[in-house]
Design a binder for these strands. Structure first.
Lengths: 212, 212
DNA sequence: CTAATTTCGAACTATTCAGTTATATATTAG
DNA sequence: CTAATATATAACTGAATAGTTCGAAATTAG
């Protein structure tokens, strides 16, 4: 048999690498990128300064790793919230509800690292990553709309791309609103209303009530 | 006659107070709250350090003044964009277009101080201000919907409050998207689509194509 | 047990930063 | 012109910050 632990030579680390990154996520999430000092990370991650630099690099490098890991986890959760329900309405509502719930979770800071914090980081690599993440999110929703067409839940001329963008814009709006203290309850109600709106059938153009 | 200039005693100031605050706006707008140092403000505002402290106070005090002035100007412009057009569809589209255009103006930073920067400031007074500003924005849009009912542009059972919130959420979403580098052209197209969506008449619930 | 290896903890250094002080300068009042 | 007043410039002080260094500690290899 192989040594499954595959022990290395020197003194063993007193921290878990992925665990430390998750703690770093909370630090950036609650304080924003510029608001975070190395000492904040040292304290929050439970890693000594020299080890932190040796293992993770500087603040920017840590943030990039945090961002990637966060996006992967959050993307998976969002996909689950979107794809688990049977009906299309529940799918879209589930997606938006998930955005609200994760943005108002009491355990962690308000908002979302991807939506609220990272866009303010003045860094080309971060921006590029966020563009891809945003496109991925919209594509996920668009795919769900396509499945809805296949299942006959919406007509075949349903504007899947446009509505998908609108769903993600709603998610952004709701998430940002969580940041200014809007209560979860309010946001959850608005998430339902948003789901209803994007599924409205479009009968021609917006019809005036007294059609002249 | 009165001395219209009303000259004060000592050495005259070498800077204009409101002008300096506008410059400070650009500094906070481009660097975020935590990313700004006093030296940034000294350089950006064209005011010496001691004068800056004497006249404006510390960073937080400057930001609060900047925020109030910015909100007043932006609120007025947004109201104009919303209320100038004749038709309701143009009003809503104008409001959202204004959000996009001001968020992608080449002269200043991307995004919006109220939507993108201020919500991340960890300060109770700022948060309270933002809540009121957000409520004011939604009320403005809601009022326009009400006028639309009076004018017969939308039915009397149009959900004015819900749709108003949705319009502002769209504005938030579009504005945040400008931050990650989404081109103005794309956002303007999405603003039009959003205006169309919120004005769709709701014929009962989202009707499946094959109504069973 | 000894040597090699890796990490830990504490302290160190140079820099940046916030807020203040001291002095020079520009203006008005008389 | 002189005194009083208000601002500008520059320099100063103490604290915070980023990144590094060095010796002690914990582990494996032999």
């Amino acid at each position: 048999m192989f040594q499954n632990t595959a022990r290395k030579r020197g003194r063993p680390r007193s921290f878990d690498e992925t665990g430390a990154l998750e703690k770093a996520t909370q630090v950036f999430w609650s304080k924003g990128y510029d608001g975070v000092t190395i000492d904040d990370l040292v304290a929050g991650m439970g890693v000594g300064r020299p080890s932190l630099y040796a293992v993770f690099g500087d603040k920017r490098a840590i943030f990039l790793r945090v961002l990637r890991a966060y996006a992967e986890r959050k993307g998976a959760s969002a996909a689950k919230a979107l794809l688990s329900p049977q009906g299309l309405r529940d799918s879209i509502a589930g997606f938006l509800r998930y955005a609200v719930e994760s943005a108002t979770e009491k355990r962690s800071a308000r908002g979302c690292l991807l939506v609220c914090v990272a866009p303010l980081v003045n860094d080309a690599e971060v921006q590029q990553f966020l563009q891809k993440a945003a496109a991925g999110g919209a594509a996920l929703v668009e795919g769900r709309f396509r499945d809805g067409i296949t299942a006959g839940e919406i007509p075949s001329d349903f504007p899947v791309a446009v509505r998908a963008i609108q769903v993600t814009d709603f998610a952004r709006g709701l998430t940002m609103r969580s940041l200014i203290g809007t209560p979860r309850k309010t946001l959850l109600r608005d998430a339902e209303e948003a789901a209803d709106l994007v599924l409205l059938p479009r009968r021609g153009k917006a019809a005036p009530v007294g059609d002249s």
